[in-house]
Amino acid sequence: MGMNGAMLLECKDIMFQYPGADTPVFKDLACGLRTPGFHALFGPSGVGKTTLARMIAGEIKGFSGQIASEQMNNILYSYNLERLPGWYSVGDHLAEITPSSNKDKIDDLIGFFGLRACLDSRFAQMSLGQQNRTNLTRYLLQDFDLLIMDESLANVDEVTREQIILKIKEMFPARCFLYISHNVLEVSKFCNQILVLRSVHKTPQAMSVVGQDYTEGKPLKKQDLELTMLEVVHAA
């Protein structure tokens, strides 16, 4: 569970307290990601997962400590409640915001994420699951080194969610993902490294658990998965 070796992303001695709050969110927080891949940020509600994610993305400043990243110039943070502007149809929006270098991915992602039937719809006309998938699709169509997915698949059914995660892993093996979820089974099964964030009163505040990093066709031992799940729950 240690965090030694060269890090792709490293948070060191992070201290942060929201203005007006009685207790800090982080105290001497240290954590990091070692390799590209599909990783998770796990922890109970209110422990600071979104805060840490926003700090990594550069949206929250004014904390002490250091967040260092190697070869990560483009960090994107997305969350499940985002909306598309109402004046566009989904298809028009995706066409407009996709960089020309990624245009070839549009069709593949739209087809796989089951959005073909919604292309002429406005965002508000879609179901919550479709909205989440559309939002994630437009982020995947950007140029990024790290994509933080804050409960980005919250309203998507379990089977589709699994398929989407596997597809992301297949399409973007060299990119880095940080998936924020409360689903122990999901993070244990699909993630390479699971950063478990704990209460500010616990030391250390973050632990790292090695996940099963399941991909299509790779054997998965039930025992190993259960062990990982136990480790994650125990760490939390």
Partner: peptide
């Protein structure tokens, strides 16, 4: 915030 987030994050 829920609409602007994407455009801010992608510097658009």
């Amino acid at each position: 915030a829920d609409i602007e987030q994407f455009y801010i994050a992608t510097k658009r």
